[in-house]
């Protein structure tokens, strides 16, 4: 399946994380153009970001977040080499985790 792209950079004691996830982010409101059938909702509901073992941010999402979501956030702390882990869970129970090191 897809993967999560993560870039994390620390500068002056603040780490900035940028991430890109692959997901259709269907709201459930759209209809198939040919058959007219509704396209079932399929979107990421929760994104958890960890620095080492600490959760630094939890994002709760609706289908109103754009397809292939981009997410950037910052936290105090973080040294080059520290691990960052981002996990998403969608409304159909799928999940994915990506990791990166702070540069």
């Amino acid at each position: 399946m897809s993967d999560i792209k993560i870039r994390a950079k620390s500068s002056n004691g603040v780490t900035t994380v940028k991430s890109l996830m692959s997901h259709v982010m269907e709201t459930g409101l759209r209809k198939d153009k040919e058959t007219g059938d509704p396209i079932p909702a399929h979107f990421i509901q929760e994104v958890t970001a960890k620095w080492k073992d600490d959760v630094v941010m939890t994002a709760l999402w609706s289908g109103g977040v754009s397809k292939n979501p981009y997410l950037s956030f910052k936290f105090n702390g973080g040294e080059p080499g520290d691990p960052i882990e981002i996990t998403w869970v969608d409304n159909q129970g799928n999940s994915e985790t990506g990791t990166a090191e702070i540069s």
Binding site: T27, D54, T58, S62, G63, V65, S66, L71, F73, F75
Partner: peptide, 28 residues
Amino acid sequence: FAAGNNTPLIASFEMSENSVPFVSTRIK
């Protein structure tokens, strides 16, 4: 929130004690 959407709440980001109150994303 996107005030004009059928369901206006797009996303909520829960901060931790280390968080800097900053988020950037893309919405519909």
